[in-house]
Structures are given as structure tokens and as C-alpha cells.
Simulated scan of single mutants.
Amino acid sequence: MTMQFSVLASGSTGNAIFIESDGQSFLVDAGLSGKKMDELFSSIGRKIADLSGIFVTHEHSDHIKGLGVLARKYKLPIYANEKTWRAMDRLTGAIDDSQKFTFETETVKTFGAVDIQSFGVSHDAAEPMFYIFHNGGKKLVLITDTGYVSDRMKGLISNADVYVFESNHDVGMLRMGRYPWSIKQRILSDVGHVSNEDAALAMNDVIGPQTKRIYLAHLSADNNMKELAKMSVTQMLEQKDAGVGHQFHLYDTDPKVPTPLALI
């Protein structure tokens, strides 16, 4: 039993993650145009038409921009919780009721050998949630778009093989940047986004013997840089003697270029 995945796109401009395992394939979020989603799938040698389903985290446009187009074009099943479905209603265009499936927060759905577990996060959306993919003792955690990582979340996501983990902003860059103060307050709040430093502190609490890879995700285009995020997270984890660089490794994600398909 194996899982493969690719972070197709991650950042302020759009988010999408592909996972496949034992003949099933899944997409978490479709935050780019339908055309761009087709290009991303082609670049990893996969087809959107083969997906077993699309799983939505929340209704913000950088997570659902292409959802309606893909749903209509490929007749795919779409999974989201009830509040997110209501919030998306006017944003996606018409999606046939036969394609709409409810996946409530803090529940598990099974697809063949794959168990997909949903969990709530703290973000200014209707009912934001992310996902943990389990298969054969392997565990892939997706966690972005949260203002903080609570003890409850940490308990659920601990000791995963792979994390796709939010490292949204550098606090200094954000404070000095061009955003209006109201936007800065929102990002820094408990329903905003996790900073590089706070991401590293949370990672230190959840990494375990199984952990091999952490992908730094959802970097702000204005308030972060790949090199800065990796340096900040690495330094803090080194201070905690967490095993970065030998027990596990950090990887970049990109808003336009998929990460290579990786085996878990």
C-alpha cells in the first residue's frame, strides 16, 4: 500500500494538492483556473478525469477558483461540509446536486484502502477544515489557512510521514509591508495565517519518528520568500534539536510549479 502526492500549487494566488493511492486519486482544492489546473495535471502525467473526487477545505477563492469549471467539465464528485457548501453556492456557478457530497468536520470517509480524516482549523471562513490521508500505516497531513495550531489539532496531526504545512508570512515583512493595517491585523489574528516562526514551533510539537518530509506551503507572495521561510523554520527547529536535515527534510512549494510526485 503506497501513497503518492504532489503539491500542484500553493500560495496566495491558488492552492491544489494531488494524492493517489492504490488506484484512487484525489484533489484537495482547485484554487486556479480550469485551464491552469489542466496544465498542472499534465505536468505530473495525470488526468483530472481520473480523479475519485475533489475535497474542499473552505470557500476562499484561492481554494475554489476552478472548482465549478472542473465539476461541470469532468462530472466529478465534490466533497465539502454543509456550511462550506452554502458559502460556495454563489461562487462556483451551478454544480449538479448528484455531484455534491457532504463531508463534515471531524469525520472520516473511506475510499478503498484510503481513510480521509477531516479536522477543523481556525480561519475566517464558514467552517474551514483540512485533511489527513491514511493508508497502510502511512499518514499525510495537509494543514494551511489557520491562525494558530491548537493542541487539539496537534494531537490529530502528530507523527505524520509527510506534512504540507502553512508557513505563510514573515512577521517583520508583513508589519513593514504595503498592506492596509486592517489586512495585517486579519493575517496576524487567530483566524488568519501562521507565520514562519509559529509554524516551526507547531512543527516541533508534532513531528515524530515517522516524519520524513515537511513541505512549507501557502507562502504569501508579498510577505514571505522561499529562502526566508526555509531559513526561519530551519533555525528554529535546530534550536529545538528537532532533527531537521537528517531525521526529516524541508521542501519548498510554488504557486505555479508542482512539486515532483513523491512516494510516501
Rank of each mutant, 00 (worst) to 15 (best):
M173H: 10
A49D: 11
Q99L: 07
I132K: 07
K83M: 11
L70S: 10
T2W: 06
D170K: 15
H63N: 07
H58C: 06
R90N: 06
Q4T: 10
M225I: 11
Q210S: 14
E104T: 14
V141N: 07
S118G: 15
L216K: 03
M129T: 05
Q247E: 03
F130T: 01
S43N: 13
G136A: 12
L67Y: 01
N15E: 02
A71G: 14
S220A: 07
Q99G: 02
Y179S: 05
G66M: 03
P128E: 00
R46F: 05
F55Y: 14
Q117A: 12
M3V: 11
A221H: 13
A160S: 07
S98M: 08
I78G: 03
F101M: 10
A94N: 10
K212R: 09
F119Q: 07
V162G: 10
M88D: 02
V141F: 10
D22H: 01
F101A: 09
D89V: 09
M225A: 11
A262E: 11
N159S: 08
S25K: 00
S220G: 06
G208T: 05
N15A: 07
R178I: 08
S42Q: 15
L142G: 06
L8R: 03
M153L: 02
I264D: 10
T144V: 11
S232T: 13
I116S: 05
S12M: 11
H246E: 08
E104Q: 15
K138N: 14
S6D: 05
L237Q: 01
A126M: 05
Y74V: 03
S232C: 12
I264V: 15
K154V: 01
E238K: 09
A125K: 03
E20K: 08
H134G: 12
D97W: 04
L8G: 04
T253D: 04
S189P: 01
T110M: 07
A217I: 02
I214K: 02
Y163P: 00
N159Y: 10
T13Q: 12
S189I: 00
S118E: 13
F165D: 00
I78W: 02
S189Q: 02
D252W: 02
Y131N: 05
N135H: 11
I44G: 13
F133S: 11
T102G: 11
M203K: 00
L8W: 04
V171R: 12
F111R: 07
P209H: 09
S98E: 13
D252A: 00
M203A: 00
G136Y: 06
A87S: 08
